[in-house]
């Protein structure tokens, strides 16, 4: 009987003490709109992200083709002319949340410094921002925002549309990470 109770207790608590928290359907959004022109924004609901709860390491993988635009032609140009998605199908992030301790996570939002390497089109750039974390039962919600410049990743914007695309692109992410047992 004691063994059964112990097993149930372990099973109940295992979510809270999992070593890894993951999502396969994280939402990554970017906005490169300029006022008075057609909105240039897209969302990817297919992002993989992993948080190592022991040391705060974070890894994420995005398939560029899964960015969805409202306007189909904009999506075609994004993949073929700007991102070269056939040659570079993935963007990745590898970094860490500083001062992260699973046991200190609260049900209220808490800020953690997030830094790491963002790789787009095979080009690596350092990113530093603040992530907002929130614990909900056995799930951790991570939200963050940072800006990137197209030229940092050798994304050439033709002169004809340069005025219609923001010089700095705002990337917003919202991941609901579940305990991997």
């Amino acid at each position: 009987m004691k063994k059964v109770i112990l097993f149930i207790v372990l099973l109940t608590c295992s979510g809270l003490h999992a070593q890894k928290f993951i999502t396969k359907t994280g939402e990554t959004h970017f906005k490169a709109s300029v006022e008075a022109f057609e909105p240039v924004e897209a969302i990817n609901k297919n992002t993989t992200a992993i948080l190592n709860a022991v040391n705060g390491d974070v890894a994420a993988l995005i398939f560029i083709r899964s960015f969805h635009f409202e306007i189909a032609l904009m999506e075609e140009h994004f993949n073929e002319n700007y991102m070269d998605s056939d040659k570079h199908p993935k963007a990745t992030f590898k970094g860490s949340l500083s001062e992260f301790e699973l046991d200190k996570l609260l049900k209220q939002e808490q800020s953690y410094p997030l830094s790491g390497t963002l790789t787009i089109k095979g080009i690596e750039r350092q990113i530093a921002t603040t992530a907002i974390l929130l614990k909900k039962d056995d799930m951790i919600e991570v939200k963050a925002q940072f800006e990137v410049k197209p030229e940092d990743f050798e994304i050439e914007i033709p002169k004809l549309v340069r005025e219609k695309i923001a010089k700095s692109i705002i990337v917003t992410l919202k991941y609901e990470l579940h305990a991997k047992i």
């Binding site: 993951i22 396969k24 993989t48 992993i50 890894a59 993988l61 398939f63 083709r65 199908p89 993935k90």
Partner: peptide, 8 residues
Amino acid sequence: YVGYDDLL
């Protein structure tokens, strides 16, 4: 099919 996820 969008790709192989080598993380998972």
